[in-house]
């Protein structure tokens, strides 16, 4: 499998700060996926994405993007599209100027695609981007990033500042682009609901470290909430990896990554939704062990 983004013990400190914005981050993201990067504010999501886009230089460790070090040259930059959190546009410039600039700077610029998208968005190309709504500016930034025909598209909190309708329209446009082009997408959000339908791969980042990473469906299939009579300690159901544990005087509840079939009838096992799965990893302090070679999900 080819790799879109691979990091090894990647770390970043800003300036002379002693604080690690990202620490010991080891990841391997496959191509052809829509990867959701989730974590609370300050977990290091923007730092990781900035490093991947070649906007930041690592303090420690290694990072490869599409098999090369980021910022290894303009040719490599052309393969990566990046939209940072504030959907940057030049506010004094018109939409048409942006498109001319894009065409000038990007060797693989797809002018027909870009014009078609702007046309459908119903935005007058002569307008300055400073006079557009936040949603329209986000769409222009996405269109610019897609127009350069990248192999990897990195979006940092793309919909955080948008209202529900603009959010929906943005995600519709993004999913259409994924269907049309051979595109890997990595997008971050602190809201799981933004990612639920769009992503097929999940990375949970907490306190600058990766808590869990994997195929979304496999993760959902391999995690269960197990409830049963109160157990004496945090030792969960045998053979399963405990993510979180909680107890009342009568009952014990564990969220586990299953290590085999669920046979013990003294436990009641129910599947988890994406939101609960993410919350379990945000709350739990157990780190995720990488699973053994993927087990085929039996239906």
């Amino acid at each position: 499998m080819t790799t879109a983004l691979r990091t090894h013990e990647l770390g970043k400190r800003y300036g002379r700060s002693r604080h690690w914005a990202l620490k010991d981050c080891t990841l391997d993201l496959p191509t052809g996926r829509v990867v959701g990067l989730v974590g609370p504010n300050g977990a290091g999501k923007s730092t990781l994405l900035g490093l991947a886009a070649g906007m930041l230089v690592p303090t420690a460790g290694r990072i490869d993007v599409l098999g090369e070090a980021p910022s290894s040259g303009s040719e490599h930059l052309a393969r990566v599209g990046f939209v940072s959190q504030d959907a940057p546009t030049y506010r004094g410039m018109s939409v048409a100027d942006h498109l001319r600039l894009g065409a000038h700077l990007n060797p693989r610029w797809d002018d027909a695609l870009v014009r078609e998208r702007i046309d459908r968005l119903g935005i007058d190309p002569s307008r300055r981007t400073g006079s557009l709504s936040g949603g329209q500016r986000a769409q222009i930034a996405l269109t610019m990033a897609i127009g350069k025909r990248p192999e990897l598209l990195i979006l940092d909190e793309p919909v955080a500042a948008l209202d529900p309708l603009a959010r929906r329209e943005f995600m519709q446009d993004l999913m259409e682009a994924v269907a049309e082009q051979d595109l890997t997408v990595v997008l971050s959000s602190h809201l799981v609901s933004d990612l639920e339908r769009a992503c097929d791969y999940l990375v949970v980042l907490v306190d600058s470290q990766v808590r869990v990473a994997g195929d979304l469906e496999e993760l959902l299939a391999s995690h269960r909430r197990m409830t049963g009579a109160r157990r004496p300690s945090d030792v969960g159901p045998a053979g399963h990896h405990v993510v979180t544990a909680s107890h009342t005087d009568r009952q014990s509840t564990f969220v586990v990554r299953t290590g085999g079939p669920l046979v013990d009838p003294s436990w009641d096992a129910t599947p988890l939704g994406l939101e609960d799965l993410v919350l379990a990893y945000l709350r739990g302090d157990a780190s995720y062990e990488r699973p053994r070679p993927t087990v085929e999900v039996v239906r």
């Binding site: 829509v34 929906r168 995600m171 519709q172 446009d173 993004l174 999913m175 259409e176 994924v178 269907a179 339908r197 769009a198 992503c199 097929d200």
Partner: peptide, 10 residues
């Protein structure tokens, strides 16, 4: 994918 804003792989 567009109409539902959903991953095309789904």
């Amino acid at each position: 994918a567009r109409q539902l804003a959903i991953n095309p792989n789904t």
